[in-house]
Structures are given as C-alpha cells and as structure tokens.
Amino acid sequence: MPSKADSGEATGTWTLGGREWTSRLIVGTGGFRSLEQMERSLEATGAEIVTVALRRVDPAAQGSVTDVIDRLGLFTLPNTAGCYTARDAVRTAKLAREAFSTDWVKLEVIGDDRTLLPDAAELLTAAETLVADGFTVLPYTNDDPILARRLEEAGCAAVMPLGSPIGSGAGIRNPYNVRIIVEQASVPVILDAGIGTASDAALAMELGCDGVMIASAISRAADPVLMASAMRSAVAAGHAARYAGRIPRRLHAQASTSDEGLPELS
C-alpha cells in the first residue's frame, strides 16, 4: 500500500522537502574507484540527488567531487557520516549548511563502527535540534516503526529506514517493519542502506517506499556503470509493480489456460 505522502501515481514526480523530483533513486558518492567512474555511474542512475560527506581539506587530493556534481547539475545532499553523538552531527550539519548553502542534511548518528547502526537516542536529539534550527532533516534510521514515528513527529522531512547495515548488501532484513513504517508515515519513506542488488531495490519500492538510497551496491559493484543502470530500472519497475496490483500469493496452482474446449486425444 502506498504511503500517504505519495501522489498515488505509478509515474510522475514526487515531493521531498517541499521540492518536486522525478527520480526516486538517491545515490551516495562514496566507494567509487575514481571520480571518472563516479561521474559515469551517477549519469547512468538518472538520480537528481546525491550525497557527499565533509572531511578535512587534503592538499594532496586529486580532483573534486563538487566539480563533478556541478558538472552533472545534481543536488548536493550533505551527510553527517562518521558522527557518533548528536553534538557532532549538529556541528557537522552546520558546517555543511555553510559549505553548500543548503539547509538539507542527511542525518546519520551511528552507535558503533562494527554495525554502523543508528544510535536512536542521539539521532532523535540531533533531529529535534536541527529541525528547530530550520534544517530539512532526512534521518537514516533503524527499521523501527516507533522511532520512525518519533522522527516524523520531530519534524523530519522524510524517514530513511535501513534495509540492513550500511555496506552489508544483505538486502531488506525486515520487510514487515518497512511496510508498517510506510503504512503509518505521512512523510516520504526512503529505504536506505543494505541494498545489494537490483531485486532489493525493486522490493523496497514494492513495499511502498517512496524512494531508495544506494551507495555501495553501485560504487563497489564489479561494473558500477552497469549496476547504476540496473538500479535505475529496478526502482522504476518496483514502483510500477506496486501500483499495478500484484496477484495474491496462493498455496496451490491456478491455471491461466481454460480447460474449456480441451480436445479428447486418448
């Protein structure tokens, strides 16, 4: 069942953060082997929104991710990757606002470096602080319907539940929770993290998500440009399938061919 935030149409635009978008695929820029490969892959995804991280200026670094994003005319969504506390995440978001003249932030507050799972308490605190400061907050969250509701009540512009841990490629481990999150949300739901291959992205859309965020599954694929194109198709296919009205699952077969007029040949 589509979320209430969706227009209910299989095609056309959707609204996130008060703006209209065509692509439902948001792409992370991390993990590509080169900027050149990143550029060709981003083009192949058809994405309009891409995430970047903020790190110390490195005088030895070659090329600029910002130049690539500008050249492709994409919308920069800064994240707070690597932040473990609400305080650090809020400071990083403020730096990002200054760096990119945007009040949008993909809020990540993680609990440890083994699971990279969100720290729910710190995440909610950071979200409340940033919303109060005028940010458009897109929080990376656990697949927890109650936390998702709390983040929406805090004023977040979307909720971004994980399918499975970041970079794990383990797909959507709890599709039931994702369905509950979708069912109750009145802001867009964007499946974030854990996508491994095209069928995972299609499933996210079939479950009713409004969009999918993918990084590693594209950037670390053997052929990132080809996978980028596969993900683009998967998101479109899953979105269309959800509105097409799938047949119910049955235990037994149901013939699609009628027995009427079957010749007697024995």
Binding site: T29, S64, V65, T76, P78, A81, L95, E98, I166, A215
Partner: peptide, 24 residues
C-alpha cells in the same frame, strides 16, 4: 565565509577546514 577575513585567530585555537568528499 563572509567573516573569514575579519575573524582573527588566537594562540592555540583549533581550526577545522573541511570540504566535500565522496560519501554515502
């Protein structure tokens, strides 16, 4: 940015200069 030229540093202050890098 508009205050970069006016903001004078004091001994021992910590300055972080960051920019965009590839990130999920």
């Amino acid at each position: 940015r508009a205050r970069w030229r006016d903001r004078v540093l004091a001994e021992g202050e910590s300055v972080e200069v960051v920019h965009a890098v590839q990130g999920g």
